[in-house]
């Protein structure tokens, strides 16, 4: 195939080829993001996402949004600046959640027999939708970082509460009060995860009484803003065309 020759012979064929490209790129993007995002999220959010007895009002609420806004920011930057496509966050989170569910279902439940109601992943989709819509409406990275990033952190806990609330019902067990989630962690033995490495309900937010979740969520939202900026630039750098020869 010489460079002077056109690859397609008619407009109809061009349209068809372009569409084929769309699907192939989308497929590749989806699974490449899935792989990278999944590893990143497991290494940084890890146990907070794995176990119901780590999903607390302080640290889970803070950590999960901060470490999960990364790939959405980067993919958004690539898809928006090059193609004006505002689905970078949603496609990333859909890919991640597919990977997480495969992992939890096949490995945690299928292979090791931890009940799914103990090791289900966190829900990140509400925040991703907001992030994409803010980017589409504003077309501005700064606004998306500030408004979208903050919203991403804020909506995380309420977006997950309907899923975890049933597990926070208290129970009296052999003379001690605990939540059903705590009991799951006690019952379903994890040899490699002793109780003391569980980082929950730690921190200095004691002055806020029992309303720590909103405070943690705000804090998380603020950090999300910074992380969004950072990863947006990663995405921009990554989607440069300097790596490829020729004009694009």
């Amino acid at each position: 195939m010489s460079a002077s020759q056109s690859a397609v012979r008619s407009r109809a064929e061009a349209v068809q080829v372009s569409r084929t490209f769309d699907w192939m790129i989308l497929f590749t993007l989806f699974f490449a993001v899935l792989g990278g995002y999944h590893i990143h999220y497991m290494l940084t959010g890890g146990d907070w996402d794995f176990w119901s007895d780590w999903k607390d009002r302080r640290l889970w609420v803070t950590v999960a949004p901060i470490v999960s806004i990364t790939f959405p920011a980067a993919v958004q930057s690539c898809l928006w600046w090059r193609y004006r496509l505002p689905f970078g966050a949603v496609v990333s989170v859909l890919a991640l959640l597919l990977g997480e569910w495969i992992n939890r279902y096949l490995n945690f439940w299928g292979w090791t027999y931890f009940p799914v109601n103990f090791c289900f992943p966190s829900n990140l989709i509400p925040g991703a939708i907001i992030l994409d819509v803010v980017l589409m409406l504003s077309g501005s990275m700064t606004l998306t970082a500030i408004v979208g990033g903050l919203a991403y952190g804020l909506i995380f806990y309420p977006g997950n509460w309907p899923i975890i609330a049933p597990l926070h019902v208290p129970v009296e067990y052999n003379g001690m009060m605990m939540t059903l989630a705590d009991l799951q962690g006690y019952h379903y033995v994890r040899t490699g995860t002793p109780e003391y490495i569980r980082m929950v309900e730690k921190g200095t937010l004691r002055t806020f009484g029992k309303d720590v979740a909103p405070v943690s969520a705000f804090f998380s939202g603020f950090v999300c803003i910074i992380i969004y900026f950072l990863w947006h630039f990663f995405g921009k750098w990554f989607s440069k065309t300097d790596f490829i020869e020729g004009d694009i």
């Binding site: 899935l34 792989g35 590893i39 497991m42 990977g99 490995n107 292979w111 090791t112 994890r190 490699g192």
Partner: peptide, 13 residues
């Protein structure tokens, strides 16, 4: 990559 990522973490058995 995806498959290997999904397989990466299985709780200690």
């Amino acid at each position: 990559t995806t498959l290997s990522a999904a397989m990466l973490h299985a709780p200690t058995a």
